[in-house]
Design a protein around this nucleic acid. Sequence first.
RNA 1: GGAGAGAUGGCCGAGUGGUCGAAGGCGCUCCCCUGCUAAGGGAGUAUAGGCUCAAAAAGCUUAUCGAGGGUUCGAAUCCCUCUCUCUCCGCCA
Length: 442
Amino acid sequence: MLDIQLLRSDVEHVARLLATRGYAFPMAEFTALEAERKILQTLTQELQARRNAASKQIGNAKSRGENVSALLEEVANLGDELKQAEAQLDQIQTALQHILLQTPNLPHDSVPRGKSEADNVEVRRWGAPRSFDFPVRDHVTIGEGLGLLDLQTAAKISGTRFSLLKGGLALLHRALSQFMLDIHTRKHGYDETYVPYLVNAESLRGTGQLPKFKEDLFEVLRKKNEAAPHPGNIAFELEDDSLYLIPTGEVPLTNVVQDRIVPLESLPIKLTAHTPCFRSEAGSYGRDTRGIIRQHQFEKVELVQIVHPHHSYDALEALTGHAEKILQKLELPYRVMLLCTGDMGFSAAKTYDIEVWLPEQKAYREVSSCSNCESFQARRMQARFRNEKGKPELLHTLNGSGLAVGRTLVAILENFQNADGSISIPEVLQPYMGGLACLRRK
RNA sequence: GGAGAGAUGGCCGAGUGGUCGAAGGCGCUCCCCUGCUAAGGGAGUAUAGGCUCAAAAAGCUUAUCGAGGGUUCGAAUCCCUCUCUCUCCGCCA
């Protein structure tokens, strides 16, 4: 969420910046609501002040044993007037809040302007794609050839975009997540965390998935006593009772500071977790339909840093490096892309994507996305720290995949394939696989 | 799932309708005193907003005692709903 003060003081500037991300900020609506808000809030507060003063007087008079009926008459109409003003103000505030919740983060100065993926900027490349002296197969052909990948059965059990891994491939999948977790906890200083996979709407609002991206989430309805209607905001009622499967470990990890003021000494907070991720992939029909690149359920080792605002951009570089380290150790060629304004996610101020080389596609494909959200999520979550002056101040939050397990698995299958259809196991993973150096058909 | 108890500021804890944003204590900050230490004395110490203001400073003001609603001129205090925590019983990996 953006700082409303910033919008009040310079809407045009904010709107211009947002336009670079392809977001049309409803400036006219906002300005009109703001003007109304100002009038109504002043009025409401005036009425409240009058009521408070009168009540105080009545209290005083009563304690002196005086007759208060005259005073009571004076404030007789105040109540209705106040109630009306409060209701109107509440409506305006809700409308303003709605706009704010829908508005994406502002891009950092160093983010290139651009409309789409095509305008992203390559920052660096690591490793040279290997050349093959035999026809390169894709991960599906390889996995099925090994008899270790069974998408048909997964489809029967659940539907499309689910996968079933068997034997050595399932082991490789597990080895990968263990390996990643070990590196991040032992070498990069992250605290391993076990988190809930079902979260409430409040947490999703905090990290920015709600209210705007509800379509992408799997919602788990809780059967509650429907008979008991609960008063209050009907619009949020359903949302608040549901739980949602996490679309990324970022949600529970970042929300650990939700609604908290952490001491300065506890910073930076660096957390990692291995979690499943669930995405409905609404609107991605026809994209990556083959194989396990784009699934409703996949696993990820997530990195989250919660830091002092002064250090968040250094932290972004470090965090990106932590994710890269995994690919380096796995000897997988990759490149790092700086996303342009038009391609960034909702909450991010700056994002690096890490893309791994897939020889069959002859393309680099995303395995990690590392973002600095600055105070955008912190403001939504009310996540603060006590600064050098002892005053509460919003934290900065960062997150990145370190890495997406399924896609890394795909990269290993394709990059480490041999002419006979077998797969060599990257050296660093062998200890995690009982010393196994090669996956071949039984 | 059943029964009961509870939720107040950074922490502990008082407060059952009226100058209560909230006693007292701890902690923290500043000052004084004591040669240092210890002890003591004094002052201060919530958050988020709004308005005035070019801005800062300052002033005025509103809201917040788990959340939301209600009663009332007035609610931390009374009523309703919900959430969470704790204890006991049941069930369970």
